[in-house]
């Protein structure tokens, strides 16, 4: 089953092609906000090199967030179009789960995506019999709150994601020897992880729709928040 996956939740634009048991290709570029320009050419470059066309793909996977609202919509709109044109299945995968999946670690895996102004998107995962399990659901919180939580209740922690670069000092100060910072090759969003998770979820029976798939924003827009306040 050929699976094409993309992740444009963060500054990293990444696409990958997997078949049943191998990664056939993966392109990633960490560049400021050029996803709209580069994503489709990047996918084309990868598929051309593999002598494949979009019509040869059996399953589409896409990171649905949390992350940059605009970035997420670029990836999701692109993948929904692919799936729609050939009426193929599409699976949305949490960006945080994708990051956690990068790390084959027997302890607590904590992906951290910067949400700006000292806030982060995060969740807590661990592996039971090799399967990635979500134990604290994806949420937005202050970085200090996460540090408190980890200090008090968790040990053997590994962190990754762009938030670990932004808040590196805070994390090291709070957690010291309890924490491993992921190496660079496992620190960023990888479409290969999104693709492998999409395939797993597809086999477990998950089905998303190219009509209805939308980002997991984890946050209302500012206008929505203000409107809700006004109505109260």
């Amino acid at each position: 089953m050929k699976t094409l996956a993309v992740d444009t939740s963060t500054m990293m634009a990444t696409c990958a092609l997997l078949d049943e048991d191998r990664l056939l290709g993966e392109f990633s570029l960490n560049q400021d906000m050029t996803h709209s320009e580069n994503l489709v050419p990047m996918i084309k470059e990868m598929l051309d090199n593999l002598n494949l066309k979009v019509k040869d793909i059996d399953l589409f996977g896409v990171a649905i967030g949390p992350g940059s609202f605009t970035g997420l919509r670029i990836g999701i709109a692109t993948i929904k179009s692919f799936a729609h044109v050939f009426d193929k299945p599409v699976i949305g995968v949490s960006t945080l789960e994708g990051l956690a999946f990068n790390l084959p670690y027997k302890g607590y895996i904590v992906p951290i995506i910067d949400a700006r102004r000292n806030r982060i998107y995060t969740g807590i995962y661990n592996r039971i019999k090799g399967n990635l399990i979500n134990i604290v659901e994806p949420t937005i919180m202050e970085v200090d709150k996460l540090m408190e939580l980890l200090q008090e209740e968790y040990d053997h922690i590994i962190v990754n994601g762009n938030g670990t670069l932004v808040y590196r000092d805070i994390i090291l100060e709070a957690l010291g020897d309890q924490v491993i910072m992921a190496p660079k090759n496992l620190n960023s969003c990888r479409a290969s992880s999104i693709g492998e998770l999409a395939l797993l979820k597809y086999k477990e029976g998950q089905r998303d729709s190219y009509y209805h798939l939308v980002p997991e924003y984890l946050r209302e827009s500012q206008a929505q928040r203000e409107l809700r306040k006004r109505d109260k």
Binding site: S36, L39, V40, I43, K44, V54, K55, F69, T70, R73, I74, G75, A77, T78, I79, K80, S81, F82, H84, V85, F86
Partner: peptide, 17 residues
């Protein structure tokens, strides 16, 4: 910009596919 991006991403996806 954000609104335009949805349309252009969809359109590019269709054209390339």
């Amino acid at each position: 910009v954000g609104a335009l991006l949805v349309g252009i991403s969809s359109a590019k996806g269709i054209a390339y596919a």
